[in-house]
Nucleic acid binder design. Structure first.
Lengths: 232, 232
DNA sequence: CGGAGTGTTGAAAAATTTCAAGGGTCGTGG
DNA sequence: CCACGACCCTTGAAATTTTTCAACACTCCG
């Protein structure tokens, strides 16, 4: 692995306080690799041989059952995925594929578990990361169960707006088909939701969204920090 | 705390390998308490002062947003709840109330975090428990997003059947109103789903369900181990 | 004996999905 | 370089699912 990669990884909260020799032993076993877009990385049901970290690009986590498919999450840099399966040495509950050309770090699960046992700082970082993942899924589930389709779309736009530093125009970070699946609806329904929201403070133009009236958007979306706030 | 309680707790996987003095320091700070049915234990947004463990009875985790409410999970003995908030010292994302008279163990969050740092065996147990919780929510979410209402109800019955050791008659462990919310539908819709399933291998009688034709029930429910299997 | 809470059923309303068609973009191969 | 096909997004209309509203039976408890 290249030293520049190593520096980036060292900077992650997950590894920040890991002892030097433990970190080196993890990195020795790990390797960074580039993948083209739309490549299958893992399949549901396989056992978790590696912990993955997205360094560049983005990865879709999705699940399938009897002919239906749904996106569970999109992982952007810099984040881990399938940490829980790695910890439990259990089969993946979600499949993963690249959405765009991506650079990933793969660390053998057994090494992760070993260092977890040897290095309390790493253990603490792992458990914090896992707790964050858990809370993130809980928020997704609240989003799905407590909101209508239009509210979900509206709040998604509000979050984009916040992330952009309240820019006048925000851009969808991936295709509407994927977004629809993440938000638990069909692409057609997402299209109509965007249409409906144009009377409530936004103006769509392809993947670009102009925020004209944030207050109106909030009025119909009813944001809730305990669902939307990425901190907490 | 009574010694019999202590023995029960010592038997939990979470505490099985904890060093004796660490365990005692946790138990010294903890207390077991009985609560009547339908008592609010915690509210969303409060900070996580305690880790809870259900010793007897059952607890509903639920969430609210702008006048709507949904059940997120029902916690049966012996399990923890709100572990992630405890670890992160963050606000609860879910509220909790007893469903029936219950006995709970409350351990101050700060003690949990301290022992987590001091005792590698406890750290490992915590992270395993948390990973299980995470995987459990992911499965719930797959259940919601990949299945129709009838399939969710059918698979719920199949799980009950399995848990009972394939008894001819199984009993719903809590009210249909709660079950409907857990399964992401209205009580009316659950009623109709039960009705529809009577042509597919079951016979309802109040809270009792007779399993007449497991194969027919599976045919319409399409079970999937990566959603339904509580192990894995 | 009320009265509250729970579960069921029917009918109407609303939300969502499905099906079908068409416009647009992009990349590849002729 | 252009044409074609593949894919994505949008829109309309119909079908389906789900929710809502209303009424009613039943049980449990005070």
């Amino acid at each position: 692995m290249r030293d520049t990669d190593k520096d980036i990884i060292r900077g992650l909260r997950l590894f920040a306080d890991v002892e030097a020799d433990k970190f080196d032993s993890l990195m020795m076993a790990a390797y960074a690799q580039r993948f083209p877009a739309h490549v299958d990385l893992i399949r549901e049901g396989e056992t978790a041989d590696f912990l993955y970290i997205v360094l560049e690009g983005s990865v879709e986590l999705f699940s399938t059952s009897h002919g239906r498919e749904t996106s569970m999450a999109i992982v952007a840099p810099v984040s881990t995925f399938i940490l829980a399966a790695t910890i439990k040495d259990a089969p993946y509950l979600m499949a993963a594929r690249t959405l765009e050309p991506s650079k990933l770090l793969l660390i053998p699960s057994s090494n992760v578990r070993t260092v977890f046992g040897d290095d309390p700082a790493f253990a603490r970082a792992i458990v914090t990361e896992l707790a964050s993942c858990y809370r993130s899924v809980v928020k997704s589930m609240k989003n799905l169960k407590l909101r209508t389709a239009i509210e979900r779309v509206g709040n998604y736009i509000i979050r984009l707006h916040d992330k952009s530093g309240k820019a006048d125009i925000v851009e969808l970070p991936f295709g509407k088909r994927n977004l629809a699946s993440i938000l638990g609806m069909t692409p057609e329904n997402l299209s109509r939701a965007f249409g409906a929201l144009q009377s409530h403070g936004i103006m769509m133009d392809g993947a670009r969204i102009e925020i004209l009236d944030r207050a109106a958007l909030e009025a119909i979306s009813k944001p809730n920090p305990l669902i939307d706030d990425p901190r907490s």
